[in-house]
Nucleic acid binder design. Structure first.
Lengths: 208, 208
DNA sequence: CTCTAGTTGGACTATTTAGTCCCATCTCAT
DNA sequence: ATGAGATGGGACTAAATAGTCCAACTAGAG
């Protein structure tokens, strides 16, 4: 069985797809902990156990690889958030979402930050295509938050005039800013505090 | 006249200090727009018009240079924020502070983000000393915000039981998260929105 | 089965980058 | 004035890194 490759339109066997996936996964891991700039192609080769010709067979160089990593990480994050937020329709549900993120980040003492956020701040100014992809991913993520807020609205928990999209933006910013402060402090506390403040504001609108 | 150099304790003439400052300033500019990882020492030499021996005379390599850049940028940011926040004691004053940051960032359509924030997310996981310096700088910045909130408290605008430090953390996170979303979207709006949300929450505590 | 095209290994080159070295020039304390 | 030590220019080396190439192997369509 063969399927089309997205970037060249070449045929792609199952074996080739597997190799490609291994490269992207290894690159994603390395770039998450070392940063994009400090991750060399040789690092990726060593980590994935793949030879140079294979990497250049699947990608035209580092930039395209980074874009593939963004797609890969983005898909995973969006999937995770869809699972976590897709059916939330209560304030306690939002708090449980917060708890899960905070606890997961606490395992690393805040290190490495948000998988999408760190990519975004490192790449947005250097690669316009990557920036657009990341921007799109943040929009999707934020839309999941907006969905929760709309369900709160439908149930009457939030007033009809609540500015859903702006609240979602504020919540997302609190999350990302919290990630970054936690990363710098190597302490998850500021992340917990900032999300709590955003949630407290949302809750304050609902008390009516 | 000679003065002591901080990193080697060597004598340092006025001329040497000037050269050192030129190197740091050029490196700071480059790292702000290109990122730390994409800024090479040769870039710094070209931009500062200084020769290699001079750079290695003043710094032991790239890491020490990055740390000097962090000190330099940190000093400028803290100075700016001290000027902007040092005497603010009203909500409208905080809004003017917000306006200044938003407008300044709008000039670049959000590109490059916060000078300290981008350094933090790029360097925190790679250089422990740099991370500590950045963490300290964020604390100082946040303390300036806390100072404003305490003055609001003293004037009775904020209730005595308001959790000043947590509010300052939340405001800082909103700011940093907003910077990052703006950088990714190349649109300053999310930054404005997220700070507004944090300020709205603070204001909601004051109405009493 | 067999031919075509995808896949793979790894050596090879070119370039970039960090870091070293030496000698010339300038500054300042004595 | 003068000598010690700071400042300066820039060529040089070593290592890392990106990117190329080709021969060998494998999978799948007909």
């Amino acid at each position: 069985m063969t399927t089309a490759d997205s970037h060249t339109g070449r045929r792609l066997t199952a074996r080739g797809a597997k190799t490609r996936a291994r490269i992207v996964a290894a690159a994603a891991d390395l770039m998450y902990v070392k940063g994009v700039g400090d991750t060399t192609l040789d690092d990726v080769l060593a980590a994935s156990g793949v030879s140079k010709s294979q990497l250049y067979h699947h990608f035209d160089g580092k930039e395209p690889l980074v874009r593939a990593v963004i797609d890969h990480v983005g898909e995973r994050v969006i999937q995770r958030e869809r699972d976590a937020l897709g059916h939330v329709s209560t304030i306690p549900g939002l708090r449980r979402w917060r708890d899960a993120l905070v606890q997961s980040n606490a395992l690393r003492h805040g290190a490495y930050g948000c998988a999408l956020g760190t990519l975004a701040s490192e790449v947005s100014d250097q690669d316009e295509l990557a920036r657009q992809a990341l921007s799109q991913l943040f929009s999707e993520w934020q839309e999941l938050l907006a969905g929760v807020l709309r369900r709160l609205q439908d149930k009457g928990t939030l007033p009809a005039e609540a500015p859903i999209d702006q609240l979602a933006t504020g919540l997302m910013a609190a999350l990302q800013g919290g990630y970054m402060l936690a990363q710098t402090a190597r302490d998850v506390t500021p992340m917990a505090t900032s999300i709590d403040m955003a949630l407290a504001y949302i809750e304050s609108l609902s008390a009516g």
